[in-house]
Amino acid sequence: MPIPYRLLFFLDNATTSIIEIKRLDLPDEPDRGKVYAWLLFDKASQALTKLDFVAMNSQPEAEERQFAQGQLRFSLREATFQPAASPADDEALLVCPPTDLPPALAAAVDTYLQAL
C-alpha cells in the first residue's frame, strides 16, 4: 500500500528533479525531519537521493535551503542548485506546479517511502 504524501515543491530540468514532500501518514510526529523530505532525482540513472537538510532562509525574493549535498535557491519561477562537491557546477531548474509527478519519479518516491 502506498504511503500518502503531498508534493510541496517541484523543481525540474532535463536531467534532474528536486522535490519536497510532506508525509501524510505521520500527523502527530514532532520530528519534522521524518515528515518532510527534500529529494533529488537523477533522470539518467533513475536514482533518488534524500538531501540532508541543514538550514533554511526565507527572503521576499527567494527561498534558500542548505543541505549537506549543496545549496538550493528558488523563487516563484526558477531555481539554482549548487552541489557541495562541485560548487562551480550550478544547476538551473524551473519551478513547476506541484501537481502529478512524472511516472519514473513517482515510482522512485513510492519505493523510497516504502523502504523507510
Rank of each mutant, 00 (worst) to 15 (best):
M1A: 14
I3K: 12
P4H: 11
Y5C: 05
L7F: 11
L7D: 12
F9T: 14
L11Y: 03
D12F: 01
D12L: 05
N13V: 06
N13Q: 09
T15G: 02
T16S: 02
T16F: 00
S17W: 00
I19D: 01
E20F: 00
E20I: 00
I21Y: 00
K22L: 02
L24V: 00
D28M: 03
E29W: 02
P30M: 05
P30F: 05
R32Q: 08
V35T: 13
Y36V: 05
A37M: 13
L39Q: 11
A44H: 13
L48H: 05
L48C: 09
T49Y: 04
K50W: 02
D52N: 15
V54K: 15
N57A: 14
N57Q: 15
S58L: 14
Q59L: 15
P60F: 08
P60I: 07
P60E: 09
E64Q: 11
E64M: 08
R65C: 07
R65L: 02
Q66V: 11
F67R: 04
L72M: 10
R73F: 01
L76Q: 14
R77L: 12
E78S: 15
E78H: 13
T80G: 02
T80M: 12
F81Q: 08
Q82W: 06
P83T: 08
P83K: 10
A84W: 08
A85N: 11
D89V: 04
D90K: 14
A92T: 15
A92V: 15
V95S: 09
T99K: 05
L101S: 06
A106K: 07
A107Q: 13
A108G: 07
V109Q: 04
Q114R: 14
A115G: 12
